[in-house]
Structure formats: C-alpha cells, structure tokens
Simulated assay, not measured.
Amino acid sequence: MKLASLGSGSKGNATLVEADDTLVLIDCGFTVKETEQRLARLGLAADQLSAILVTHEHGDHIRSAGALGRKTGCPVYSSFGTASAVQGKRTSLSGANWQEVRPGRAFTVGALQILPVLVPHDAREPCQYRFTWQGRTLGVLTDLGAITPHVVEAYQDCDALVLECNHDAQMLVHGPYPPSLKRRVGGMLGHLSNDQAAALLRQANVDRLQHLVLSHLSEQNNTSRHALDAIERVVTRGRERIGVASQTEGFGWLQVH
C-alpha cells in the first residue's frame, strides 16, 4: 500500500491511496484539468482511478469530484449529507455513479477496506477515511475542529497518517483573518491547530507510524516550521518519518511496508 498527494491546503486537496490494482482518490478540490495534470506528474491518468472518495462538501475538497466521476465513470463515494449539500450546485454529484457511505460502516473498494469516520466540522455530514490492506492501516484525517474519543479510537494505531496541522494558535489570533473567520477556524467545528494535532498523537501509537504527513497547513496562519516544532515534541524518535504536504506539490509516493 502507498499514498501520495496532488496538493493540500485551502486552494485544493486531493490524496491518493493505492494497493495492488486499486487506486482511490480522496477528495478532488481542483478542476478536472488541473487534477489530470497533477495526476500526470505521478505518471497516472484519471481513468486509472478505482473510486473517488469525498470527505465533505467544501469546494476545496469536492470541486470537480462529480465532474471527474462523470468523465471517467468511476464511482464517487460520500455520505448522504455531503451529496445532499451540493444538490443543484456546480459541485453536484448528480449524474455520477454515486455511492453512499455511512460513517462507522466499513466497505470495500478492490483490495482496500475503508472505514468512514465521522468528524466534527462545519459541514452537513463530514467524514474522513481509514484504509486497511493486509494488516496495515493508513489514515487520512483533516478538516475537523476537535479531537473526539471516536477519532482517537479510529486513528490511534496507523502505519501511516495524513494529519491536519492547519494553524498555529497564536498566528491565527494575530493574523489577518476577520474575527468571525478566526472563530470559525479555531472553533470546535473548524480546523485542527498544531497543538491539537500533537495532542492526538500523544494518544496514538506513534512508534508504529512509518509515515506522518502534516497537511492542510494555512498559508496565512501557519508555517512548516511551526507545525514541525509542535509535532516533534511528541514524535521525538524517527523524525525522518515526518513530512509536510504542500499546496502546489502535495507529496510524492510513500510506501507502507
């Protein structure tokens, strides 16, 4: 099993997970053309996708998921709430081979067993995903404002983890956002701060992690250095396992052995 990213941040998100002959795309927050261009950088074409999984209805995650699904014919998975939230909009999943996921109920796409995990975020029915293949577990966890016991349970024993480190709390307080947006980002239904991400890792089996990728960093309210400083206080051994996803490049293939 391996993972890669086409880009991560407020301007668009897309993550790839591959196992055997199964290739899934988690979120599609770029245009179809840009998604295809970013796939090509990894030597891939959109018609190789086995499925598209959508976490929630915000544009930086769902922008062309429906359109790409219609173009390629591959199924598009989301919660009922997510699909309902975009009904009648340009980001609608109508016309695509839409498949409903139910948080907490695992399903299978090819070689991958996938668990949708309900998370606290300001969306209709947002869920993140955990993948299992041949006894190995890979987690994708972004776009949530709080760490719940349910989230800890789902992600505490991963072999690889893509984890949101959206903002540094002090940078957010003193940053350029208006007060209402600061409250949203820093609230219980917003985004994880560096310190919140570190708090999750304190409750996880970090020694098991082969790869830890810090993702969805805010360009205004965070830096790679701030995020790494917070996380490295928890992951004190094997710091070479930690990477940072970028908005423009994402990150290249990482193998889970």
Rank of each mutant, 00 (worst) to 15 (best):
S5V: 08
S8W: 13
S10T: 10
G12S: 07
N13K: 09
N13M: 08
A14D: 01
T15Y: 15
V24D: 06
I26G: 08
D27P: 02
F30E: 14
T31L: 05
T35H: 03
L42A: 03
G43C: 06
G43K: 13
A45K: 15
A46F: 08
D47A: 13
D47V: 02
Q48V: 01
S50T: 10
I52D: 00
L53M: 15
H58I: 03
I62Y: 06
L68M: 04
T72F: 08
G73L: 08
C74P: 02
C74K: 11
P75F: 09
S78G: 11
S79V: 06
T82W: 09
Q87W: 14
K89P: 04
T91W: 10
S94Q: 12
N97C: 09
N97P: 02
N97F: 09
N97I: 05
A106L: 02
F107K: 13
A111Q: 06
I114H: 00
V117I: 10
L118Q: 14
H121W: 11
R124V: 12
C127M: 00
Q128C: 15
Y129W: 01
T132D: 14
Q134C: 13
G145N: 07
A146E: 12
P149Y: 10
V152S: 13
A154V: 07
C158M: 10
G175R: 14
Y177P: 03
P178H: 11
P178W: 11
G187D: 09
H191V: 15
D195V: 04
D195Y: 00
A197K: 00
A197C: 07
A199H: 00
R202N: 13
N205I: 01
V206L: 10
D207Q: 15
R208A: 08
Q210Y: 11
L214K: 05
L217K: 07
L217V: 07
E219N: 13
N221L: 12
S224V: 04
S224E: 15
H226E: 09
H226V: 05
H226I: 04
A230L: 00
E232K: 15
E232V: 14
V234L: 01
R239F: 01
R241M: 07
R241Y: 11
I242V: 06
T248Y: 01
G250Y: 04
G252N: 10
G252Q: 06
G252T: 14
Q255K: 14
V256W: 02
